[in-house]
Design a protein around this nucleic acid. Structure first.
Length: 164
DNA sequence: GCCAACGTTGGC
DNA sequence: GCCAACGTTGGC
């Protein structure tokens, strides 16, 4: 069981959209490091901090869970899509995605500025200088700290269950 | 809209 | 395989 953070621009797809849809295939990642994380490291049941980027203020908005792994990103084969990749062949898809499902919207939206002010979060990938990865790991300690601060119920409960 | 920090591309 | 040019991300 591992923890992750995934960025989304809320004007494109927000935690409210995920709450409405229930689950969504994480299309459109075109960065190899982020792809490798999704393809090789994420497992069904892992928890994901849902982060709103390019908004005011940016911050962690809620919690999701990995519900499927190893799915070819359909947008790579769609010539109409912004994410179309003509070099990717259907037999050997280059872009592999995961599906995430909605868990909860945090009672307390945690802005990036607030995260920076928590000394326990020093070293988080998100807070590192120049960090742009849209899919990134979160340590259990950092996850727990953020969960508590955000008034999260589901994620922390599931973590307690894992410990027992 | 600016721009720093990366990542990718392609000539050589 | 180097590296300059270009493109993108994302906070500010």
């Amino acid at each position: 069981m591992q923890y992750w953070l995934m960025k989304s621009e809320p004007h494109v797809y927000s935690i409210a959209d995920l709450a409405r849809d229930g689950k969504i295939g994480w299309e459109g990642v075109r960065n190899y490091q982020a792809r490798n994380t999704m393809r090789d490291l994420m497992q069904v049941g892992d928890l994901v901090l849902f982060y709103h980027s390019s908004t005011e203020p940016p911050g962690v908005a809620g919690l999701a869970r990995i519900s499927k792994t190893g799915l070819p990103d359909p947008s790579q084969f769609d010539a109409q899509s912004d994410y179309y990749d003509p070099k990717s062949a259907p037999e050997t898809p280059r872009w592999i995605m995961v599906e995430i499902e909605y868990v909860e919207t945090f009672q307390q939206y945690l802005s990036l500025a607030e995260l920076k002010n928590l000394p326990e979060l020093a070293g988080m990938v998100l807070l590192q200088r120049g960090s742009r990865l849209s899919v990134q790991p979160v340590s259990p300690e950092h996850f727990e700290r953020i969960c508590k601060k955000a008034g999260c119920s589901a994620g922390c409960i599931s973590m307690q269950e894992k410990k027992v």
